[in-house]
Computed example of a mutant assay.
Amino acid sequence: MATKLEEAVAQRLEPWSAALGADRPVYTNHVLRVLSFCDALAGRTSGNTTAPSTREEFLTAAVFHDLGAWTANTFDYLAPSIDLAREWLTANSREDLIPLVVTMIDDHHKIRRAHGAEVELFRRADTIDVTAGLRRFGMARNDYRAVLDRYPATGFRPRLARFAAERTRAHPLSPFPMVKW
């Protein structure tokens, strides 16, 4: 039985099922891991009313943060992802969240600390997942493994490697355009 969070993520990703194709479960689990890591870093559990995963800005940023890689078919996906999030928030009368969600998406691959507590929390959660837990920002290994057991990363890193290889062949001087200082 799907949780409320899993249902919310699945519903939001539904319009892009065709673009995600066979990668839909790969991306869905990445989104769910990022949200779970946000909760863990904030010291909350999923479903807790104060957990980041229950907040619209985190849910929206997580669903859309990398989606542009599939919808725009590019590894330079920040702008397309931001556009998708902005459109979704506008269509759902949540324009008030656009500045924060845009910053969360735009800065989620910053090398240095991001400005703003929500932005930094989201950046750290995504970093935990992208680095396969090598960088956990104090999160216990058992907590990391529990999230991974629930939402396996099967296929995620190989897909990232394919995206990176394609980008590097096409743009050898700019292989990772989403990374910022």
Rank of each mutant, 00 (worst) to 15 (best):
8 A>D: 13
8 A>K: 10
8 A>L: 14
8 A>T: 12
9 V>K: 01
9 V>E: 00
9 V>Y: 00
9 V>G: 01
9 V>A: 03
9 V>M: 03
10 A>R: 14
10 A>N: 14
10 A>P: 05
10 A>W: 03
10 A>C: 14
10 A>E: 14
10 A>Y: 04
11 Q>T: 09
11 Q>E: 08
11 Q>V: 07
12 R>G: 00
12 R>V: 01
12 R>K: 12
12 R>I: 02
12 R>S: 02
13 L>P: 03
13 L>A: 09
13 L>I: 08
13 L>D: 02
14 E>Y: 04
14 E>L: 13
14 E>G: 05
14 E>D: 10
15 P>M: 08
15 P>D: 12
15 P>I: 08
16 W>Y: 15
17 S>N: 09
17 S>D: 08
17 S>F: 06
17 S>C: 08
17 S>A: 14
17 S>H: 07
18 A>G: 04
18 A>I: 05
18 A>R: 05
18 A>P: 03
18 A>D: 05
18 A>K: 09
18 A>N: 05
19 A>L: 02
19 A>Y: 00
19 A>Q: 10
20 L>G: 08
21 G>H: 08
21 G>R: 06
21 G>M: 12
21 G>V: 08
22 A>V: 14
22 A>W: 10
23 D>S: 10
23 D>E: 12
23 D>N: 13
23 D>M: 11
23 D>T: 12
24 R>D: 03
25 P>E: 04
25 P>K: 06
25 P>A: 08
26 V>I: 15
26 V>A: 06
26 V>H: 09
26 V>F: 12
26 V>G: 05
27 Y>F: 13
27 Y>G: 01
27 Y>C: 02
27 Y>L: 02
27 Y>W: 04
28 T>F: 07
28 T>P: 06
28 T>D: 13
28 T>M: 15
29 N>A: 09
29 N>P: 12
29 N>Q: 07
29 N>E: 07
29 N>I: 07
29 N>D: 10
29 N>V: 10
30 H>L: 12
30 H>V: 09
30 H>P: 12
30 H>Q: 14
31 V>C: 05
31 V>I: 11
31 V>K: 00
31 V>Y: 01
31 V>F: 01
32 L>T: 05
32 L>D: 03
32 L>V: 07
32 L>M: 05
33 R>P: 02
33 R>W: 01
33 R>L: 09
34 V>W: 00
34 V>I: 05
34 V>A: 04
34 V>D: 00
34 V>T: 05
34 V>M: 02
34 V>S: 01
35 L>F: 14
35 L>E: 13
35 L>H: 14
35 L>I: 15
35 L>S: 15
35 L>T: 12
36 S>V: 01
36 S>I: 00
36 S>A: 15
37 F>S: 03
37 F>Y: 15
37 F>A: 13
37 F>E: 02
37 F>G: 02
38 C>P: 13
38 C>N: 07
38 C>I: 12
38 C>Q: 09
38 C>Y: 08
38 C>V: 12
38 C>G: 07
38 C>H: 12
39 D>A: 04
39 D>Y: 02
39 D>F: 02
39 D>I: 02
39 D>T: 04
39 D>M: 03
40 A>I: 11
40 A>G: 06
40 A>Q: 06
41 L>G: 04
41 L>Q: 09
41 L>K: 04
41 L>F: 11
41 L>Y: 05
